[in-house]
Amino acid sequence: MSGPVVVGVDGSASSLAAVECAAREARLRGAELRLVHAFGWSVAHVPPGAALWGPDERGLRPMVEGTLAAAEQRAHNRAPDIDDRPGPVVRRAAV
């Protein structure tokens, strides 16, 4: 069994095209597809003692979740047989 197919997503047209290619490759391999979104956030802008991902995230969580949801939909459109039944084939990870 091969490892997962991992694709980085930033919401751009080129990253969504990469999601389609990755979904097709995951389907061909019978592998898990992992969608990953990462962004830089300077701790210099976080008050001492504040959580890095808390209620004051100023829309970061919705932005990341929206980016991953769009990528997940694109993956399902390209490879409908990839789904997230128990033991998910598509995993979303926000870093």
Rank of each mutant, 00 (worst) to 15 (best):
M1Y: 03
M1W: 05
M1L: 13
S2C: 06
S2F: 03
G3H: 00
P4D: 06
P4G: 02
V5W: 00
V6I: 15
G8A: 14
G8W: 01
V9G: 04
G11Q: 05
S12E: 02
S12T: 12
A13R: 12
A13V: 12
S14N: 07
L16F: 05
A17C: 04
A18T: 05
V19M: 04
V19Q: 01
C21W: 08
A23C: 04
R24V: 10
R24S: 11
E25I: 04
R27C: 04
R29P: 02
A31E: 01
L33Y: 00
L33R: 00
R34Y: 00
R34L: 08
R34V: 12
R34C: 06
L35Q: 01
V36E: 02
H37N: 03
A38Q: 07
F39W: 10
W41M: 13
W41Y: 12
W41F: 12
W41L: 14
S42N: 07
V46E: 07
V46I: 15
P48G: 04
A50P: 02
A50F: 08
A50C: 08
A51T: 09
L52Q: 10
L52F: 11
W53C: 15
W53L: 15
G54H: 05
D56Q: 13
D56M: 13
D56P: 07
D56F: 13
E57Q: 12
G59F: 00
G59T: 06
R61H: 14
P62A: 06
P62H: 02
M63N: 11
V64A: 14
V64M: 07
E65I: 11
G66A: 06
T67K: 02
T67D: 01
T67H: 00
T67L: 09
A69H: 09
A69D: 11
A69G: 10
A69T: 14
A69F: 04
A70K: 11
A71G: 11
A71V: 09
E72C: 13
E72R: 15
E72P: 06
Q73W: 03
Q73G: 10
R74W: 01
R74D: 00
A75R: 03
N77S: 12
N77D: 15
A79N: 05
D81S: 15
D81V: 10
I82D: 01
D83W: 12
D83S: 15
R85N: 11
P88N: 00
V89N: 05
R92T: 09
R92K: 11
A93P: 02
A93E: 13
A94D: 04
V95Q: 09
V95I: 10
